[in-house]
């Protein structure tokens, strides 16, 4: 398990990164924290010609807690973001989700944007981003564009990002007043990818339930109510329509069971 050969470029600015992407396109991969990429290189699941290391790019290393959004730059590690979230004491969904995210040793290197760009359907951060209705800022040599999280994730490991684009930053909306947020995850072991992860946001405006680990992408559903038969029926529908798959760890039926039961439990807790 050793990587195939590649050229290595350590970029000093975002400008350089997008120029390099314009030059190499799909022949290049962005190396931010490398916690998924280098594992894939070691297994030779990826054999890019060029790695563009963005970990030292200062203008991508910014994280900002604003009034509307928590904006996280492409080189910001999960550990740094976790600390900011903990210190701000005001970003409840992410605060609950971070401890599930791999292990502190991988959060020390892994980046927030890397996890978003990788689009693993069981990963926690993409789930939080869609549940909160966040956005992804993409930048290419020619343009910048902002894509809503709900549009960004297209399927397993597949996103709206073009090969010449960099996920420059992501925006997690700050919590709404009066809204309550909750995150639950069932995994086989602590720190594993979720068998099912649920992220809930309950406010006067309604109930949003995000589901990870079931469909081919993180999914968010607006539910009609917070209790009763209508909620049960909506959850039943949701459980089925995500087209759950069976794998060696859990059956499709098990995943549907968790969506129904933990979904109801989470929403009930958030609305009580």
């Amino acid at each position: 398990m050793k990587p195939a050969a590649f050229d290595y470029i350590r970029a000093d600015s975002a400008e350089e990164v997008v120029q390099l992407l314009a030059e190499y396109g799909d022949d290049a991969r962005i190396l931010a924290g490398g916690q998924s990429l280098i594992a894939a290189l070691n297994m030779r699941l990826a054999q890019p010609r060029v790695l563009i290391d963005i970990s030292c790019v200062a203008d991508l290393s910014r994280i900002r807690v604003g009034n509307k959004n928590l904006t996280v730059g492409a080189a910001v590690t999960q550990a740094v973001a976790e600390k900011v979230v903990q210190d701000s004491n005001n970003i409840p969904l992410l605060a609950q989700a971070f401890p599930h995210l791999g292990h502190f040793q991988t959060r020390n290197r892994g980046t927030v944007c890397g996890s978003i760009a990788h689009a693993d359907p069981s990963a926690e951060l993409p789930l939080c981003l869609v549940t909160l209705g966040g956005a992804v800022n993409l930048r290419s040599w020619r343009r910048r564009r902002r894509v809503a999280a709900s549009e960004f994730f297209r399927g397993v490991l597949t996103t709206a990002r073009e090969t010449n684009e960099l996920v420059e930053s992501v925006e997690f909306p700050m919590p709404k007043k009066q809204a309550r947020y909750g995150f639950v995850e069932v995994s086989m072991r602590h720190g594993d990818f979720a068998l099912v992860a649920l992220a809930g946001a309950v406010s006067d405006q309604g109930v949003r339930l995000g589901v990870g680990g079931v469909a081919d992408r993180p999914w968010v559903e607006t539910l009609p109510t917070t209790s009763g038969d209508d909620l049960d029926a909506a959850l039943e529908d949701l459980a089925w329509k995500l087209d759950a798959r069976s794998d060696q760890h859990a059956s499709a039926r098990y995943r549907r069971h968790l969506v129904r039961n933990l979904g109801r439990k989470l929403i009930t807790e958030l609305s009580s």
């Binding site: 290595y8 350590r10 190396l31 490398g34 916690q35 280098i38 594992a39 070691n42 790695l51 290391d53 970990s55 550990a79 502190f104 040793q105 991988t106 020390n108 290197r109």
Partner: peptide, 19 residues
């Protein structure tokens, strides 16, 4: 393979030497 790099514990198998 965990080592510390600039004080942070991390996997040396998921880190390139050039990094």
């Amino acid at each position: 393979c965990t080592v510390t790099v600039d004080g942070l514990a991390q996997r040396s198998c998921l880190t390139l030497a050039v990094v």
